[in-house]
Amino acid sequence: MRILVVEDDSVLADGLKVGLGLYGATLDVVATCTDGQAALATDEFDAVVLDLMLPDGSGLDLLTSLRAKGHRIPVLLLTALDEVSDRIKGLDAGADDYVGKPFDLDELAARVRAISRRQQGRASPYVSHNGVTLDVARLTASVDGTVISLSRREFAILSALMDRPGIVLSKSDLEARLYGWQEEIESNTVEVHVHKLRSKIGRSKIETLRGIGYRMRPASS
């Protein structure tokens, strides 16, 4: 899961980056509305964690302009302004959730998971396909009832593939899920992780389409 954080406080931004990273998400952090707008225009994210009071304006304006452009990305407002009226204003402006500062990291992670789950049209916290079930909250997978623990990277690749099974994801699509902007992309990482995944969940579950990418093998085959 790739999340954009728009937060100007360096300590908090770092905390979100590291903290949500522990939950298997890949984080990109920007500090201003302008940078946030640019990031959303150029990259794909699964969710946005948006602060309201930013140096170059209100996060609410960013949210409003996003929604005006028809952007459907889930947005969680994270702000110190947490009067009821502020919450209402934020939600009515198009936010999917609202969390007041200070917050619990676990709860924030759960809420981010929840809004992105809804975005994908799922209600269940588990993603299942062809005998593989993903527990998004615990970062684990189970194959035919057997729980398998996965590394962060493995989980990220598997959940990306399982979000929309049948859709082929290229290597660079998967790299985008694995790395934030500042992270150095190691070559062959995707191949290495897919290889490890196959050995854990079964060779036949992930299909390689040579030259195109990877996808979950459909259940019928």
Binding site: L12, G15, A80, L105
Partner: peptide, 13 residues
């Protein structure tokens, strides 16, 4: 609140 939120997050990490 913002620095406190940062503190809390970092402490949880």
């Amino acid at each position: 609140r913002t620095p406190l939120a940062g503190l809390r997050t970092q402490a949880q990490i």
